[in-house]
């Protein structure tokens, strides 16, 4: 690859608005999986916490 080609500007990828919805959804799932301790999902939080217990510890989030 020549220097000329490398310096050619790449066209930006258009990021449509719905992409941000996916990002929020993905982060919400990660939240439920790792950080939820009853702040949002009061009742099922304990169940989620215990089921994903080992993954929570392993990805390094604070745990009980």
């Amino acid at each position: 690859m020549t220097t000329l080609e490398r310096e050619q500007a790449l066209a930006p990828i258009t990021v449509p608005a719905w992409t941000w919805l996916v990002v929020v959804l993905a982060l919400a799932v990660v939240w439920a999986l790792t950080l939820e301790n009853g702040m949002v999902l009061a009742k099922s939080a304990g169940t989620l916490h215990e089921f994903f217990h080992d993954a929570r510890h392993f990805v390094g989030v604070p745990c009980h």
């Binding site: 990660v30 080992d54 993954a55 392993f58």
Partner: peptide
């Protein structure tokens, strides 16, 4: 919990 942990790791990965 070990199985849950593994499922959790995979879901975390996709997100």
């Amino acid at each position: 919990q070990q199985v849950g942990g593994m499922i959790g790791a995979a879901v975390y990965g996709v997100c």
